[in-house]
């Protein structure tokens, strides 16, 4: 299960591989004893084991192995008690996953609301409720719930990121940028968040109509992408965005013609774009090579398309 952190979690094949380890992990989890004399002899009751079980639960749910997922939930509630906050949320997650239709989901939503009325600071259930609202197709309610949530828990990264995504899905780009900036403030070295912010700035730049606004956003986007590459070498998403943003900004400069008060001079932008192109070519070559490890193929394909279109 150590592979969870190294492989790409959004890669279905990796998830399936993890889910197939279910029997061994579950067997380990069920042999744990915490009562004193037995605790010396039985296998260790370590944090890692229970984190493994939790990861396994996610993997099983994603790969459709509901029975193993149920066993995971059972093991966790045996160990930590059914009223443990986190176990409650995991159980809710399992119930959501096996729910037959929207009506069943709505009853789960009511359950969550009931739990929250009793204990208004139940963070995991709060999050589940918002996630359920989102999956029921009520993004406005989810946003309202999240805004309330981050008012009380303003240092929760997960919530800010989710809020940013929701805003973006509703087309409120500037709010999305604000939310994500809050998340970056908490973890200033997260290069993926920097790149994501760059993407949002890029979107804001392309959707805006005012010339100075466009330039402001695109400049910011170029800088965000640069920062993300600075933090993480050979970051594909960063280079991809850098190429797009710098070329777009060049276009914006040339269309504005006069008042050349550009913060990043055009020559530099051309350099950046060239650098990004050459780097992307190198990355594609490496990843499609014969000895390439199984990475995220869709990303590589997208890059190839971008390179082809810019050549043509």
């Amino acid at each position: 299960m150590a592979t969870t952190s190294t492989t790409n979690p959004s890669d279905p094949a990796a998830v399936l591989r993890i889910a197939q380890k279910a029997p061994s992990v579950l067997a380990k989890a069920s042999s744990v004893s915490t009562i004193f004399p037995a605790s010396i002899f039985s296998s260790a009751d370590s944090t890692e084991l229970w984190q493994d079980v939790e990861q396994l639960l996610y993997a099983c749910l994603r790969s459709g192995d509901d029975e193993s997922a149920f066993l995971c939930v059972e093991r966790l509630s045996d160990r930590f008690g059914a009223d443990n906050e986190r176990v409650m949320a995991l159980r809710g997650l399992y119930q959501e996953a096996v729910a037959k239709d929207d009506a069943a989901l709505r009853t789960i939503l009511e359950d969550y609301t009931k739990v929250l009325q009793e204990n208004p600071i139940h963070v995991p259930i709060h999050k589940r409720r918002i996630a359920l609202l989102k999956s029921l197709g009520r993004p406005q309610d989810a946003i309202a719930g999240l805004v309330e949530f981050v008012d009380s828990f303003p240092t929760d990264i997960e919530a800010w990121c989710e809020l940013s995504d929701l805003y973006e899905s509703q087309g409120h780009i500037s709010q999305a940028i604000f939310s994500l900036e809050e998340a970056v403030l908490i973890t200033p070295h997260a290069w993926n968040l920097h790149a994501r912010l760059g993407e949002l700035e890029y979107m804001a730049g392309t959707s805006s109509s005012d010339h100075s606004e466009i330039r402001k956003h695109l400049t910011q986007a170029v800088r965000r992408f640069s920062r993300s590459i600075e933090l993480c070498d050979d970051y594909l998403r960063g280079f991809y965005g850098l190429k797009l943003a710098s070329e777009k900004l060049l276009g914006a400069y040339s269309s504005a013609k006069a008042n050349a008060d550009s913060t990043i001079p055009p020559e530099k932008l051309q350099q950046l774009s060239r650098l990004a192109t050459s780097k992307l070519e190198a990355i594609v070559k490496e990843r499609t090579g014969p000895r390439s490890s199984a990475g995220n193929e869709s990303e590589v394909i997208a890059v190839q398309q971008l390179l082809n279109s810019s050549k043509g």
Binding site: T47, R86, P124
Partner: peptide
């Protein structure tokens, strides 16, 4: 560790 596991599980968000 016996004591710490339970505490860690208790809080999804240590912060």
């Amino acid at each position: 560790s016996a004591s710490q596991v339970a505490q860690q599980m208790a809080q999804a968000n240590p912060g």
